[in-house]
Write a protein that binds this DNA or RNA. Structure first.
Length: 272
DNA sequence: AGTGCGGCCTGTCCGC
DNA sequence: TGCGGACAGGCCGCAC
């Protein structure tokens, strides 16, 4: 389940194979992703890949001279890998970006919650991107910002930090982790978290995401990077999927509770 | 405006 | 052993 660290890991994995290469074909085997893959993606054919970057959990592959590029979201079960273009596709290998060196970037997504689309410059004007909040690892993301935006909000702080309009890239795993690190109960109303504790939460979010990126992401079940390597952050998780196990801080059993339709893990003693 | 929830998907796991 | 159902979850879009 790719969250920001897994998407960043994917970007770092595919970028060296893509940048500067010319796209010779886009092969769409199954266009029925979250939204139909549009024919416009073929605008990349015959052009070179330029700037490769990430915005939130979206991968943006700029295409030289096309005033736009390819937008990819891995959804819940998507992955990209680099492989020979003539390698036989596996089940759920829906799209290939074929490159002029004989390799391709292959998009695989069993659950098809992913997105493969074309964007026009500037990418941030794309309907999927134009409402997004700040990047958690940018200087715009601060405790003061969280405190300001949360004013009057009565929903759970966990849902608040998972809201892409507030801050992007904080998914279910890292939300639980950051709230544990900051000692904040996931169910606490967002508007009732103090400025000091939002400073701590901001720091925890930055810290957990940065460490997870360094470990190549979190492999819980099936995440593999483009070179087929798992991420090594799972062994550093403090709360997520530790229901019933002792809290590392106070040994109280970690509890699981569904908040906003998602499993949340927290220490009922340390997190208030 | 903020909040909550349905829906999209398939692989995996659990209980009968 | 087989089978149905719950569950996993990012994020849009809708209803209140």
């Amino acid at each position: 389940m790719p969250e920001l660290p897994e998407v960043e890991t994917t970007l770092r994995g595919v970028s060296p194979s893509m940048a500067g290469r010319t796209v010779t074909d886009i092969v769409v085997r199954n266009a029925a992703l979250r939204w139909p893959v549009p024919g416009e993606v073929r605008r990349a054919v015959g052009r070179a890949v330029g700037d490769c970057r990430r915005r939130a959990k979206y991968l943006l592959f700029g295409i030289g001279g096309a005033d736009g590029g390819l937008l990819v979201h891995l959804g819940m079960s998507g992955s990209l890998r680099v492989c020979p273009a003539d390698a036989p596709p596996r089940k759920h290998d829906h799209v290939d970006i074929v490159l002029d060196d004989g390799n391709c970037i292959r998009f695989h997504d069993p659950r098809r919650f992913g997105v493969f689309d074309w964007y026009e410059d500037p990418a941030d004007a794309h309907p999927l991107l134009n409402h997004l909040g700040p990047e958690p690892l940018s200087t715009a993301f601060t405790g003061t910002y969280l405190k300001t935006v949360s004013a009057g909000r009565r929903g759970a702080v966990k849902n608040f930090i998972m809201d892409g309009k507030v801050v992007v890239g904080v998914g279910n795993i890292y939300a639980s982790e950051a709230l544990f690190m900051a000692g904040i109960h996931p169910n606490r109303p967002a508007g009732r978290v103090s400025a000091e504790r939002y400073d701590a939460l901001c720091q925890a979010i930055r810290d957990v995401l940065a460490r997870a990126i360094r470990r190549g992401g979190t492999t819980l079940r099936d995440f593999l990077d483009p070179g087929n390597n798992p991420g090594y952050f799972a062994q550093e998780l403090l709360a997520y999927e530790r229901e019933g196990l002792p809290c590392f801080r106070c040994e109280t059993p970690i509890r699981r509770k569904v908040i906003g339709q998602r499993s949340s893990y927290y220490c009922p003693s340390c997190q208030r």
